[in-house]
Design a binder for these strands. Structure first.
Lengths: 210, 210
DNA sequence: CCGCTTGCTTACTCGCGAGTATAGAGCATA
DNA sequence: TATGCTCTATACTCGCGAGTAAGCAAGCGG
């Protein structure tokens, strides 16, 4: 298999430190959650992919839900950081929006990003659900704020900002469902083109002659 | 509870025919699959919601996968029919596209439609996966064909039709993830507004003065 | 050398849920 | 009354996977 490099390496190189090992568990788990679904991912499988056994995982995490929550949290953080970073690039609001959405799209092609859109609430514990919702709400808020800034600036047509956010993030989130690393487009290209499409719309401009 | 009206009704009214009962199982199962996820839906739960017991379900279906496949197939058929029907309304290609997408959006607010986007491939058996993929491919093909017709007609700007289809269907599919029947908008309204947004795009038109 | 901790193992428990064996109730035909 | 079909229930089996118990090896302070 060797799906991931593992810090355990068949009884050698066990000096790697705790957080590195936690990370390895999360990476493999995130991948498996996305590929097979949360309920269908057994911790025995995850352990096997890392050349360890299940109780070892319990040495680093309290239970399965903690792993799941950590994966989702990491994905949410990546999206949030992407937007925040784009926001700091002090350009026009429209350029900030464009940059933010492009990076958002890219995160959707990565394991932790995919977790955010492929995992659904019933997979999480009550506490995890709350954190999940909070994280998504925060991201939604950022996108809405950016849209409002653009509207104030005059670069985006005034519209129902809530529905616009759902439309845009829906298109972006769905990337996680069809993206194929072996496909013709990289995450970056997808982001750039999709964002351009969303902003320009699909309709042809009205013909010049009445 | 009384989530659904059940043809079994506490030992009364058992004269309803077979297909009606199959339907009832599918409706309840679809709802539960969407709410709780496929793996987390036990047939015992489904049976209980219908005032029956699990073996009764097995009298109408071979196994859980058959139920799941039937739910997804019904959802796919609803989308396909929606597009096909819109296509028969012999208007301009753009009007046919608009009508098709609006109906697509509406289906996404219904139980069986939601199944299509909330269920993911690993939930299905090998055979079910194939049918699922085929159904989605067919729908994708229809949307692409409509887009191409519009481009030929001049009503849609020439573009990467494949990515455009992913963008549009992504936004529409995502409706199933946030739609709330108690929310301010009906399925019809959501469809109409979202499709308008997608076609027109979000960017403000270039200012009249250079 | 002892005792303690850390990291990992093998070998369990235990509950849940898919699917089944079997039987009984109701009805229809003979 | 006997036969047999349809529909449903009670009461199982059985495997899988989350989580645990208990112990073993390696390092480290004394």
């Amino acid at each position: 298999m060797a799906v991931e490099q593992s810090p355990w390496k068949d009884a050698f190189g066990r000096e790697a430190d705790r957080s590195e090992k936690r990370d390895a568990v999360l990476r493999v788990a995130a991948q498996s959650f996305c590929e097979r679904g949360v309920r269908a991912t057994s911790l025995d499988d995850v352990a096997e992919r890392l050349n360890i056994t299940k109780p070892t995982i319990y040495h680093y995490f309290r239970n399965k839900d903690e792993i799941l929550v950590a994966c989702v949290a990491r994905g949410l953080a990546m999206i949030d950081d992407a937007i925040a970073e784009a926001d700091r690039e002090a350009l026009s609001a429209l350029d900030r929006l464009r940059a933010a959405l492009r990076r958002y799209a890219e995160v959707m092609t990565m394991d932790f990003g995919m977790c955010v859109t492929r995992i659904s609430e019933p997979d999480l514990s009550e506490e995890g659900r709350t954190r999940f919702r909070d994280g998504k709400r925060k991201i939604d808020g950022r996108v809405r704020d950016l849209l409002r800034a653009c509207i104030r600036e005059g670069s985006i047509r005034p519209c129902d900002v809530v529905l616009a956010t759902f439309t845009i993030t829906g298109a972006l989130n769905w990337i996680a469902r069809w993206y194929d690393p072996a496909g013709p487009l990289t995450g970056e290209e997808i982001g750039e083109r999709m964002v351009a499409m969303l902003l320009a719309g699909f309709a042809a401009p009205a013909p010049p002659a009445g």
